[in-house]
Design a protein around this nucleic acid. Structure first.
Lengths: 105, 105
DNA sequence: TAACTATATTAGAATATTCTAATATAATTA
DNA sequence: TAATTATATTAGAATATTCTAATATAGTTA
């Protein structure tokens, strides 16, 4: 595999690798499409901070946005993203399950 | 989902999100188990740099190591990791394919 | 046990990420 | 058109990541 591939892949993963950005993506799995105002109210975060995180995700092609009057509506571009996060969750679950074994009383 | 879950997930993703660490994991998919010396020679990197990256991956539970004389052998702990990276690759591929459409001459 | 080999750790500089606070932009409505 | 609303951008401080170079540790062999 080429250097380009490793760089693109790590950039993609880096964009996902932040608690706030994962929360945004989770909300967008539940709601399909949300305006910025709903996202930062739901997550109880600063508007500018959420805007910055949304920019990271959109720049990486993970989210798309469209204007709707004053609002900007965001949504996940490709559903694969949800699958990736689910797999990470599964991997973490298996790791913790195995770690637990070594602590049996 | 809890804050703990988002933090664990983002830590896991962050550990994967580096070109060198992705290269290490790719080599370990081809070879199953490798000593540090083979890894840094293959990737043409500093020994201490590779040791640091291996530490990140092991701390996150992505790699495991065992001693074999002077050498330390590393391997991927759970194959799910390969699947995660493959899915990222697929997502990137689909994104690029779609981007391409908008540049048709 | 001294020298050697493989790996790990540390310090510190360079760079990148993240947040807050302030400000800018763009669309809407009075 | 002025005020309002929703979002984006910027500056800059705080923190985190990454690399190199030097050194430490641990196991092996002469």
């Amino acid at each position: 595999m080429s250097n380009l591939y490793f760089n693109l892949t790590s950039s993609f993963l880096k964009a996902l690798a932040h608690p706030t950005r994962l929360k945004i993506i989770e909300r967008l799995e539940q709601e399909d499409e949300l305006c910025v105002c709903h996202i930062y109210e739901d997550l109880d975060l600063e508007q500018s901070n959420v805007s910055q995180h949304l920019k990271v995700l959109r720049n990486q092609g993970i989210l798309v946005s469209r204007k709707d009057g004053l609002k900007v509506m965001y949504s996940v571009r490709h559903k694969e993203v949800f699958k990736i996060i689910d797999l990470v969750k599964a991997a973490l679950y298996n790791q913790l399950k195995e770690d637990q074994k070594h602590f049996r009383p």
